Simulated assay, not measured.
Amino acid sequence: MDSSHSVKESGDIAIPVTEVKSFKSRKGGPPFMAASTVRLGDVPHGAGWKRGVGIIDLILRICAIVATLAAAAVMGTTSQNLPFFTQLFQFQASYDDFPTFTFFLAGNAITCAYLALSLPFSIVCIVRPHIVGARMLLLIFDTLALALTMAAASAAAAIVYLAHNGNPNTNWPALCQQFNQFCPRVSGAVVGSFLAVAILVVLVVLSAAALRRN
């Protein structure tokens, strides 16, 4: 039995295909089969599309890291003192005076850390577009991060709304009339967190679409 091998050099995945040939014996005996292996360097179906999704996924993760990091940093460094008659008597507003803002800081910090740790998995999805395990792992944890960030941003947004507008029915004063530096900073932090929420929604949709095409 003779066998010949032809290999096409390419960066794509090689698919082995067996070619079977039939020969007659010179002495009139039964025919014998000769098998030869041919490797085809065809590009797997949908690999280019999935690689493009992986590149977009990586870019969006970096943007979400920046958004959550900025939101946590701004919230964690926000405080303002108001003098009352003398410097010995002051009104102070700080993020840690509000448990909701503390939860906001922790939620965005956790999401930022997760997104940083997920970057290697996103790179793996670019190198190996048809991998399922890493993409499924990202989909699950992206959904959890989305829920955490949404909860933190929504809770903080409610406090910011009350700080800007107050609530006369419960005698809640509009604090932003006095704390004109504190409120813009926490408002900006909430906006950054909602931006991260939007990016996480896109990441979840991209992961689900990539898994559906497998």
Rank of each mutant, 00 (worst) to 15 (best):
G166I: 13
F32Q: 11
L144A: 10
V38Y: 09
V20R: 01
L203K: 00
G29D: 02
A157M: 08
V202G: 14
S25C: 14
V124C: 11
P184A: 01
W172H: 15
F101A: 04
F84Y: 14
C63W: 13
L203W: 00
I13L: 08
V127R: 06
A116R: 13
I13W: 10
S118V: 10
A14S: 11
L195E: 04
P44M: 12
R185M: 03
F84W: 04
D42F: 13
S118C: 04
C125N: 03
Q178F: 13
A47H: 07
T37F: 08
V204Y: 03
M75R: 07
V20I: 06
I140Y: 02
T170I: 07
T78D: 05
Q80I: 03
R128P: 02
A93V: 07
F121G: 12
M1D: 05
K8P: 14
L82D: 04
R212Y: 15
I123C: 04
S207L: 05
A174D: 12
V204K: 05
E19Q: 04
A147G: 07
A155Y: 04
A34M: 15
D142Q: 09
D97E: 06
R213F: 11
H5R: 12
V17Q: 11
I55T: 10
F98G: 10
D96R: 00
I55W: 07
A73T: 13
A198I: 13
V74F: 15
G52A: 03
I140V: 00
V66Q: 12
T100P: 11
T170C: 08
L82I: 11
V17D: 11
A106I: 11
R61P: 00
F98K: 03
C183T: 08
A163L: 15
